[in-house]
Design a protein around this nucleic acid. Structure first.
Lengths: 222, 222
DNA sequence: GGGTATGGATAGGATAACTATCCGACAGTG
DNA sequence: CACTGTCGGATAGTTATCCTATCCATACCC
């Protein structure tokens, strides 16, 4: 198929496909003549994947390119794959002062001890967590940290289930794509469900027993 | 204090503070003369909050402005507050075709039944979830949906804990800020922990038993 | 063989989030 | 009270990201 049909089958405009080709998100089609290329079903799937990562997973084009590059390197072990997918998603930041960060660092270490997590000190996610706790503290919401163990326990359960899922199919290609999809879209899924659960819980808690004033709206009101 | 000290105390550059003032994220200081304003601790806190929402919570300036506006409207009930915080975070999208979306819609309805969630059909998050499942399906990863109940159960637990936390302090102002901080930073927290749990789980699963080839790296390797 | 589509290159546009510059007005120092 | 540095407010410029638009020589299709 040529670029027009690729566009029709995926809903992605032709100029955008060209852009993705330029950026290396999408491998070039097979050239039948110097200026005539043909694409196949793999391109269709890849393009859908790109849109999923970018639209649903909210990756930047550059980050998407990174993870996709991992898909293309054959035989990469799943653990490093996961890592690569993770690094693509993480946007590092640092904004708090050293004092609050120091105590946050200890809290994180304790948390990992309690849950038996062996995470390297320089892990990007670990630093992100430290920064997050320091931020909460500097805002005066240190007690949110009481919920930390609940969050961590939930995260552990999900991680186990997800890695089970990744391991279900032992084909390397499939595992790699699952690792990516699971990491990236799994984030979105978790967030969306958390929001829905909040919506339900807050409705039953704050609305059911005690009806609210007139023009009050719930999570999706005006 | 004047703008320079505000900047020093928060680490935010003066021009950026001016920008936030222009955009209405930060209320103007009190004018002592036509061109001399003074700021106080409330400005310091607000500015920290802005940076937390923008840097850690990854809200856009416009979205941050929205949630902050909610903080400023007095006496807003918590349920609507939560909703407002949520809408600021959600970036709506639509990309899948109608057929896969239709079956996704049913799956979502079933899920909500199983968990006893009463969520309105037009809820933004609900639509986001439908879109997400449809995307997974179109990528050929429908079986990821088997994990849905685990995710939902985890989300429910967390939502309960979080709304308990919000309700701990009955001062309206505090509840409102907690709803926002909990929603926005809670997202980041959950994602970060999920990643850490994955890192741990994948390390114990894929590395411990079977050492990998030489130059292989974990989630934070080169 | 003539209109339409294609591939590849290059340029242009939209938006977001700052950042820089200016200028006239203070403010603190001595 | 002069002087040096900072301030508030306005306006313009910058950078990055993610596309769109336009060209043009070729190729496909009827």
């Amino acid at each position: 198929m040529r670029i027009g049909e690729l566009s029709r089958r995926t809903g992605v405009p032709v100029p955008t496909i060209k852009y993705y080709l330029r950026e290396g998100l999408l491998p070039p089609g097979e050239l039948s003549s110097p200026n005539q290329a043909s694409y196949d079903d793999r391109h269709v799937h890849r393009l859908k994947l790109v849109r999923a990562l970018v639209d649903v997973g909210e990756l930047s084009i550059a980050a998407a390119k990174d993870v996709l590059a991992a898909i293309d390197s054959p035989g990469l072990p799943v653990h490093s794959m996961l890592g690569r997918a993770q690094r693509a998603v993480i946007t590092s930041r640092a904004g708090t002062d050293d004092e609050s960060r120091e105590s946050a660092r200890r809290e994180v270490a304790d948390l990992f001890d309690r849950h038996g997590w062996a995470i390297k000190e320089h892990s990007t996610s670990r630093q992100a967590l430290v920064e997050l706790l320091a931020t909460l503290r500097s805002l005066g919401h240190d007690d949110f940290i009481d919920l930390l163990d609940d969050y961590a326990a939930a995260a552990a359960t999900l991680a186990t289930a997800e890695i089970d899922w990744i391991s279900q199919d032992t084909t390397s290609d499939v595992m790699v794509e699952r690792a990516i999809v699971g990491t990236v879209l799994g984030d979105s899924l978790m967030i969306t469900l958390r929001r829905l659960a909040q919506e339900h819980e807050s409705a039953t808690r704050f609305l059911d027993g005690s009806p609210q004033p007139d023009r009050v709206s719930g999570p999706d009101g005006p």
